[in-house]
């Protein structure tokens, strides 16, 4: 199972607009499924998916990442960002391939 947490204006794509509730979609893990494909399945326009965390790690190339069973993805729209994001350690190449 893969958890996809949507924030801000992205919540509406899975019908959970109350910000007091976590907006989480669950998808079955499939070999080679990327974040972009998962978001398309949920009906989230990719150009609105601006900032992506995978298992709590900010990933500037998050859309292209292949997902694994148990992964947690956090997706924020363009207007939910802070420069602090640049302080988060990006995933290393090694971690991305793992």
């Amino acid at each position: 199972m893969i958890e996809i947490h949507l924030y801000g204006d992205l919540r509406r794509y899975i019908g959970q607009e109350d910000p007091r509730q976590d907006a989480v979609a669950f998808l079955n893990a499939r070999l080679g499924l990327t974040v972009a494909e998962a978001l398309q399945e949920l009906g989230v326009p990719l150009d609105e998916a601006r900032h992506i965390f995978i298992n709590g790690l900010y990933d500037p190339e998050g859309l292209e990442r292949k997902l694994q069973d148990g992964d947690r993805v956090g997706v924020f729209p363009r207007n939910m960002t802070m420069p602090h994001i640049r302080l988060f350690a990006p995933r290393t190449k090694h971690e991305s391939q793992a």
Binding site: Y7, F76, M80, H84
Partner: peptide, 12 residues
Amino acid sequence: NVLVNIMNEAGG
């Protein structure tokens, strides 16, 4: 306070 969800997602 926009940062709450961001920092929480980041585990920080």
